Amino acid sequence: MFLKNVWYVAGPSSDFGEDVVSRRICDRPVAFYRKSDGSIAALHDRCPHRFVPLSMGQREDDSLRCGYHGLRFGPDGVCDDKPAGDQENPAKICTQHFAVEERYGYAWIWMGEAENAKPAMIPDFSFITSGEFKCEAGYLKVQGHHELITDNLLDLSHVNYLHPQISGGSHWSEWDNRVEVDGNTVWSRLSRPNQKPGAFQKMLWGSDSERGDGRGDVRWDAPSVLYANTAITEVGADIETSGFHTPSAHFLTPETATSTHYFWVTGRNMAKDDEKVSAMMEKGVGEVFETQDGPMVEAEQEAMGNSTDFLAHKPLILKADAAGIRARRILRKLIRDEQETEGSTAVQEVVE
């Protein structure tokens, strides 16, 4: 079950041009293409006649014609041309269309009814386009449920064991970890005063100090889009306005119940013009998840089989799991409320 009335990242804006791109999101194939006015159209990539992908057909102006029997669908999902005319089937023929918004260099898709889309619900990732940070981006396909990756990102206690090369020798037990809930947003706030920076931080921080005040805050919004900001500054200095900051975005878009599109962006406010550092960050961030976090998440999913309800397996819960548990509970409630609303609407329509 997926939350529908929410925004998912379909991919970088640069992925979508005049050619049709088919991408499975929430276990539904979606055909994307950029219209003549520059905006992105998104249609259910499934002809209602014989269920073949519309992306296998031809694009005609701003419409897609099915390559099997020639039905043509406009960007609003309505069939605007029937080869045999209305004598063949006078009924209105449609396929679902989805609302798409472009923001922060990415295309966001609303998987519910397009008329209900609320652009104001897209979370803030303005660091990507602010110009304050040099950003690198990448993509991974993870064979695991998106909530398992959310758990990984909200819980930084694993860093010492899975990523010793970036831990700096300090331990999670020495840090102050607070979980905050603001509406449907979850924050995991990690304060690390007087810590020894990791090798990467030390290299780019540009300070001769052996220790500094650090933090690692992570924000989660449903269904699974996360913002993180790891920073370090001089002991006693204002970490909001000084020091080395590496904000990052983690867009986890379910492909199916057990596979996830993972789009990531990482930024830095130092050595912004150093191309060697850019190449190192682009390669390093991808490799860390591909060779360390990713295999762990995929091992979790393999152990669970086709199940996606992690808590139903009655796992041992540790202190560091608090933020992930909060996120799971909020998502479950949002899905439940959405289904109850849809059920009530369907009953009302039948009564009327």
Rank of each mutant, 00 (worst) to 15 (best):
M280S: 07
T150K: 04
E88R: 10
N306Q: 13
M203Y: 07
T95W: 02
A114G: 04
K276A: 08
Q201I: 01
R189C: 14
S248F: 05
H158M: 12
A42W: 00
P53Q: 13
E102G: 06
R34G: 08
H69M: 10
W205S: 01
D76E: 12
K82H: 15
L204G: 00
F133M: 12
G243L: 02
S39K: 08
G131S: 10
S39H: 08
E101L: 05
F125S: 06
Q292Y: 11
Y139H: 15
I239Q: 02
I149E: 00
I325Q: 07
D151Y: 06
A279I: 08
I128W: 02
E174Q: 12
S242V: 04
D217F: 11
L153W: 03
K118H: 09
S242M: 04
S224Q: 11
K196N: 05
S126H: 15
A120L: 11
A237P: 01
F2Y: 09
V20Y: 00
L71Y: 06
V351G: 12
F2S: 04
P12H: 09
V181P: 02
H44E: 10
D86M: 13
E282L: 12
S307E: 15
I325H: 07
E342Y: 10
W175E: 05
S170M: 07
D274F: 06
S22F: 00
Y262L: 10
